[in-house]
Design a protein around this nucleic acid. Sequence first.
DNA 1: CGGTATCCGTACGGATACTG
DNA 2: CAGTATCCGTACGGATACCG
Lengths: 148, 148
Amino acid sequence: MDGTIVDSQQDSLQKKLKKILEPTPGVLAPCPIRDILDRLSDKWSALSIFHLGDAGTLRFNELRKRVDGISQRMLTVTLRNLERDGLVNRRMYPEIPPRVEYELTALGHSFLRQLIELGEWAAHHSDPIMKARERYAAREQEAVPGKW
Amino acid sequence: MDGTIVDSQQDSLQKKLKKILEPTPGVLAPCPIRDILDRLSDKWSALSIFHLGDAGTLRFNELRKRVDGISQRMLTVTLRNLERDGLVNRRMYPEIPPRVEYELTALGHSFLRQLIELGEWAAHHSDPIMKARERYAAREQEAVPGKW
DNA sequence: CGGTATCCGTACGGATACTG
DNA sequence: CAGTATCCGTACGGATACCG
């Protein structure tokens, strides 16, 4: 029911996997996957990218208000990382008081599309995930009866 | 050059973004995105999924050998999380010595496809990212001349 | 306004030893 | 073999204070 819709694509997937997993010249070692995952792993990158993609161009404190709960420090750090990786553009205007605007680069928008895909997947599969957790929790209960 | 291939898809993207970013009933609060990102954020989940997807079914120590550098503890923790979320299936055989086999569930394979997409994106865009970093590093040099 | 600099608690993950 | 238990260092991120 799930393995029949894909046919020749299966091989393709396996090949892609092989390529990702191959040791030295692969996608893991130098920059690619590990780095991209790092951008996803820190607490605020994805959220910042979402908001920049949504709003277009934002000043530092405008973005700060939108990314709920982020500290000034972490917004700075996050934006620096994104800028460093070429996902975000930083434009500073030599005025007083200073004005700094951030926006996604073309690369950033490209990455945003991947994030949205991920978000869509998550939204679409949130139900089975939640169910799985409930089942897991239930099994934990019966496995350790003395706990309760 | 990059904004012309997508036309009516642009609105669609924006709408998806809105949906992802909307506060309470959105994708962020309950389970979805935040949780999925959590799976991506820990150090070993993605890699473990890749290897399970590549190999099919693996015993604990087989997987351990493949996931280079992972400790016994972290493999256990990682697999528990993945099992909890319904991405990995754990099958235990009551033998001596014990044998435990892990494999991706249908949901896990579905997620793997997303990971591969991400990997492909990363591989495909690793060049501009690396270049961006070099530029950033170069700008740092000139900005802080006293450092050198 | 848009940052740095500093301090500090916590959570993640590694190493090691032990167990059914 | 496949874990669990324990200890322990580090890195991530929050709070606060200060600066151009």
